[in-house]
Simulated scan of single mutants.
Amino acid sequence: MPITQQTWQGVPVHVLENDQFSVTLCPSLGSNMIRMWDKIAKREVLRVPDTLQAIQEQPGHFGIPMMMPPNRIRHGAFDFDGRHYQLAINTPQGHHIHGILRSRPWQVIRTGEADGRLSITTSFRTTDYPELDEQYPHDLTMEVTYTLSDSGLLQEVSATNHSGLSAPYGFGVHTWFMIDGEPERWTFQLPTEAIWELDPDAMPTGKLLPLGGFSSMAEGINLAGRTLDTVFQIGDNPVVSVLSKPGYSIRYSGSDAFKQWVIYTKGEAKDTICIEPYTWVTNAPNVPLDASVTGMSALAPGETRTLWIDMQITRD
């Protein structure tokens, strides 16, 4: 089936469709994959915004929003490589949250079809937005390619630093999976090593805690009665999570760089669970620990770095 350009709520979207799935990409809203419909199971895989206003007001709460940098930066400020950075303050508590990508337009640069798979690539360049020069004074090109197959959706993200200075770079996604108002039927698995202790502003204190009640998460925890807004450090475990119910399984995996995972249920688990793999932990530039622990990283001048996140769906 072809890739088609359509209109949703008055904005252009691209729809990729095969016999198993239909996915909807909105380039103008942070290149967010705002919908994934499972034709066989007849269910929404992702949390879909009801209106354009809903996603404009909460761009991190639907579909697969992309975050660079991910999550919070205390007061939007940090120092790196002898330079001071000040990101926009966009929380009531006076912090920065979720980065510079999630609500800005991306450009579609190519589409393709090969071996029964459909793909679409969009691009974002920081220098196209003069207001970013004071916040993030680097010339970066981001590209994301979504590839739809009969078994799921692959997301490949590359970042290229065109500037002459090393650019601090942390990336993550907020993927909003539906659990259909039936948390008791769903199990979540993620092999982890520790939990980041958080302060009242939901930022790491620098202390890693034992798993405690999450010690069985590698084998799977039932989501009934769970209230999660928890930051996990997975260490040397495989970068693989599984969200499943009887007869249905979503295997969500990624590049080795995704060592920090936030799991969020938006209150007690009911309709959704947000699975958030990050390359660096919340507020990483300000956490006084080694980069091997926090994931703090930078792109060297001229460097291109590519990450991938893969969603595979099986039905019994």
Rank of each mutant, 00 (worst) to 15 (best):
Q5N: 11
W8E: 06
W8Y: 05
V13F: 04
Q20A: 09
T24D: 02
C26F: 00
C26L: 11
G30T: 05
N32C: 09
I34T: 07
R35P: 00
R43E: 14
L46M: 05
D50Q: 14
L52N: 07
Q56N: 09
Q56P: 01
Q58K: 13
P59T: 01
P59Y: 00
P65I: 03
P70Y: 12
N71Y: 06
R72Q: 06
R72V: 03
R74G: 06
G76R: 14
Y85G: 03
A88R: 15
N90R: 14
N90Q: 10
P92N: 14
P92G: 14
Q93E: 13
H98C: 04
L101K: 08
R102A: 02
W106Q: 11
Q107V: 14
Q107I: 12
T111P: 02
G116F: 10
S119D: 11
I120Y: 08
T122V: 08
S123P: 00
S123V: 02
S123H: 00
P130S: 09
E131H: 11
L132K: 08
E134M: 01
Q135W: 08
Q135N: 09
Y136C: 04
Y136T: 07
D139K: 07
L140D: 05
T141I: 07
T141C: 01
V144M: 11
T145I: 01
T147Q: 14
L154R: 14
E156D: 01
E156C: 02
V157C: 04
V157W: 09
G164C: 11
G164L: 10
P168V: 10
P168E: 09
P168Y: 12
Y169Q: 12
Y169P: 07
M178N: 15
I179K: 05
R185S: 13
T187H: 09
A194M: 10
I195D: 04
L198I: 05
M203V: 10
T205Q: 11
L209K: 14
L209D: 10
G212R: 09
S215W: 00
N222G: 15
N222I: 06
A224R: 13
R226D: 02
T227M: 06
T227R: 07
T227H: 09
V231D: 14
V231A: 15
Q233F: 05
N237E: 05
P238G: 09
V240T: 14
S241R: 15
G254W: 10
F258K: 02
K259C: 01
Q260W: 05
Q260L: 01
Q260R: 07
V262R: 11
I263P: 07
G267R: 13
A269Q: 02
D271K: 14
D271A: 14
I273A: 01
C274R: 04
I275Q: 09
Y278K: 03
W280I: 00
W280G: 02
V281A: 03
T282Y: 01
T282N: 11
N283D: 15
V287I: 15
P288C: 04
P288Q: 08
L289A: 13
A291C: 08
T294R: 05
T294M: 02
G295K: 06
S297H: 13
A298Q: 15
L299Y: 08
P301C: 11
G302I: 01
G302Q: 09
R305A: 05
M311P: 00
Q312N: 13
R315L: 13
